[in-house]
Simulated assay, not measured.
Amino acid sequence: MAGRRRWSTEEILDTAAELLQTTDAESFSVRKLAAVLGTDSSSLYRHFRNKTELLRAVADRILVAAMDGYRPEGDWRQRITAVALRLRAAFGQQPPLAAIWGRYASGGAGSRLVMDEVLAALRASGLPDEQIPVRYHRLVVLLAALIAAEAGASSITPEETEQGLEQFRVAVLGADPERFPALAHFAREVRPLGADREAAFAEILAAHLAQIEASLP
């Protein structure tokens, strides 16, 4: 009787990424992945010690893809913006993995590429070395939150989107001006959370970088 096929690490990660397109991190399990591959969990634990390590590896491949072909160009703000837009685009193609990146982070090659470039760009800004780690941390937390939030919004179905818009219109345009005076005043100008996310991403990032620039010696 022939033995079961031995899957490579890359094949396991490919299948895990596909499975994570239809399930979240909580529902995902090594056992489910093994079932899809037609093998047992123990064979996968030869490649990854646990579920968290596997999820980190899947997320890291998105970072590797995002940084593929990247070359530093422009000043420090342009370099950080270019990296941020690459991350946004890469996770936009696989939205469920954005939340995994924000939750589990990564210590792989992709993570190191992103970290090294952002740290180098911050250093090029003229910030004192002792301030750079904290600035880096705040910046990456911001990017992870923005990208995960946008990915979450993009993963809902058209029917869910329309239902949400209808609820938004009812809640905002129908707001009682005596109980919610500010909301009633701005009702026709307030936009749904999912509107203009690209512009919001660019503006929030630009504002954060401007804050860093204002603190330069």
Score class of each variant (00 low, 15 high):
174 G>C: 06
173 L>E: 12
152 G>F: 08
155 S>M: 01
163 Q>N: 05
197 R>P: 09
184 A>L: 05
185 H>G: 08
159 E>D: 15
161 T>G: 02
153 A>S: 11
192 P>T: 03
197 R>M: 14
156 I>E: 12
165 L>H: 05
175 A>F: 11
154 S>K: 09
163 Q>T: 08
152 G>H: 07
180 F>Q: 09
191 R>Q: 10
146 L>N: 04
178 E>N: 10
147 I>Q: 11
174 G>D: 06
181 P>C: 11
144 A>I: 08
152 G>D: 07
198 E>I: 07
158 P>T: 09
177 P>S: 07
166 E>Q: 15
174 G>W: 09
161 T>V: 04
188 R>I: 01
144 A>D: 15
196 D>R: 15
177 P>W: 05
186 F>K: 00
161 T>Q: 09
147 I>G: 12
175 A>S: 14
181 P>A: 10
149 A>P: 01
188 R>K: 07
186 F>G: 01
189 E>F: 12
197 R>Q: 15
157 T>W: 01
187 A>H: 00
164 G>V: 00
153 A>Q: 12
183 L>H: 08
156 I>V: 15
167 Q>F: 11
190 V>F: 06
191 R>H: 02
166 E>K: 15
197 R>I: 10
164 G>T: 02
198 E>H: 13
200 A>Y: 04
162 E>P: 07
176 D>P: 02
146 L>P: 02
193 L>S: 15
173 L>Q: 14
198 E>M: 05
158 P>K: 08
184 A>W: 05
153 A>P: 00
160 E>D: 09
199 A>W: 08
172 V>E: 01
155 S>I: 01
184 A>C: 04
191 R>V: 01
166 E>F: 10
164 G>P: 00
192 P>I: 03
177 P>I: 06
161 T>W: 07
187 A>W: 01
197 R>V: 10
194 G>M: 01
193 L>I: 14
145 A>G: 13
145 A>F: 11
196 D>T: 06
167 Q>V: 08
180 F>R: 10
147 I>R: 10
151 A>V: 02
166 E>M: 13
197 R>A: 12
199 A>F: 06
163 Q>E: 07
176 D>W: 02
193 L>H: 13
146 L>T: 04
166 E>L: 14
190 V>Y: 05
180 F>P: 00
193 L>Q: 11
199 A>Q: 15
179 R>E: 08
180 F>Y: 07
170 V>H: 06
199 A>K: 14
163 Q>H: 04
179 R>F: 06
148 A>R: 04
171 A>I: 14
188 R>H: 05
189 E>Y: 12
165 L>D: 10
172 V>Y: 03
184 A>F: 04
174 G>I: 08
160 E>F: 03
161 T>P: 00
181 P>F: 11
186 F>W: 04
153 A>F: 10
163 Q>F: 08
178 E>I: 12
181 P>V: 14
189 E>V: 11
189 E>S: 13
169 R>A: 14
199 A>P: 04
195 A>P: 02
157 T>A: 00
